[in-house]
Simulated assay, not measured.
Amino acid sequence: MRISVDSSLCEAHSQCYVVDPDLFPLDDDGYSAVGQDRPVPAGEEDAARLGVSACPVAALRADDGGT
């Protein structure tokens, strides 16, 4: 699984960070620093999905890679 952020949509609500600060780091201004196609460690898939769904502006996405 991989997660990505659309930086043009992120409004720094930080709800993803509240779910898991390691999976969803923030930059110095409070915006998501996830980047593009960040790998999710094995066993953290549920937290990744929860963090993605917590974004109030749908700036995050999760790609299960077809699995």
Rank of each mutant, 00 (worst) to 15 (best):
27 D>P: 03
8 S>T: 15
45 E>G: 01
10 C>T: 02
62 A>Y: 04
44 E>I: 00
23 L>H: 10
33 A>E: 12
14 S>R: 15
52 V>Y: 02
62 A>N: 01
7 S>E: 15
6 D>M: 07
26 L>Q: 13
40 V>L: 05
36 Q>V: 07
8 S>L: 12
66 G>I: 05
65 G>C: 02
10 C>D: 11
59 A>Q: 05
42 A>P: 07
57 V>I: 11
58 A>C: 13
35 G>V: 05
38 R>N: 10
10 C>V: 06
55 C>D: 06
28 D>W: 03
30 G>H: 05
6 D>F: 00
28 D>A: 14
9 L>H: 09
47 A>L: 04
38 R>V: 08
9 L>G: 13
6 D>T: 04
7 S>Y: 02
63 D>A: 04
31 Y>K: 10
21 P>R: 14
67 T>G: 14
65 G>A: 02
43 G>S: 07
53 S>W: 09
39 P>D: 09
51 G>R: 04
48 A>Q: 03
60 L>H: 09
53 S>Y: 00
15 Q>S: 13
57 V>A: 13
20 D>K: 11
38 R>S: 08
6 D>S: 12
9 L>W: 04
42 A>L: 08
32 S>E: 08
9 L>T: 08
31 Y>F: 12
42 A>F: 00
44 E>M: 09
7 S>A: 14
29 D>S: 13
67 T>N: 12
36 Q>A: 09
36 Q>G: 10
17 Y>D: 15
52 V>T: 01
24 F>D: 05
1 M>N: 00
19 V>T: 08
5 V>N: 03
51 G>F: 04
33 A>W: 08
26 L>F: 02
8 S>D: 15
16 C>W: 06
32 S>K: 02
20 D>I: 07
49 R>D: 03
56 P>Y: 00
7 S>I: 06
58 A>Y: 11
54 A>D: 12
47 A>S: 08
54 A>V: 01
29 D>V: 01
28 D>R: 09
37 D>S: 11
1 M>I: 06
25 P>I: 13
19 V>G: 09
65 G>W: 06
40 V>D: 01
4 S>M: 07
62 A>W: 00
38 R>Y: 08
15 Q>T: 10
27 D>C: 04
5 V>P: 12
59 A>L: 02
62 A>F: 03
28 D>I: 00
20 D>G: 10
28 D>L: 11
40 V>T: 07
47 A>F: 00
10 C>W: 05
6 D>I: 05
53 S>F: 09
58 A>P: 09
57 V>T: 14
7 S>W: 00
19 V>S: 08
23 L>I: 10
28 D>E: 15
48 A>P: 02
13 H>I: 11
18 V>L: 15
33 A>Q: 12
17 Y>L: 13
10 C>Y: 06
19 V>N: 04
48 A>H: 08
8 S>G: 13
31 Y>R: 10
63 D>G: 00
13 H>C: 15
40 V>K: 01
11 E>Q: 15
26 L>M: 05
26 L>S: 12
66 G>F: 00
52 V>S: 00
18 V>E: 15
26 L>R: 12
59 A>I: 03
54 A>H: 05
51 G>S: 05
42 A>V: 01
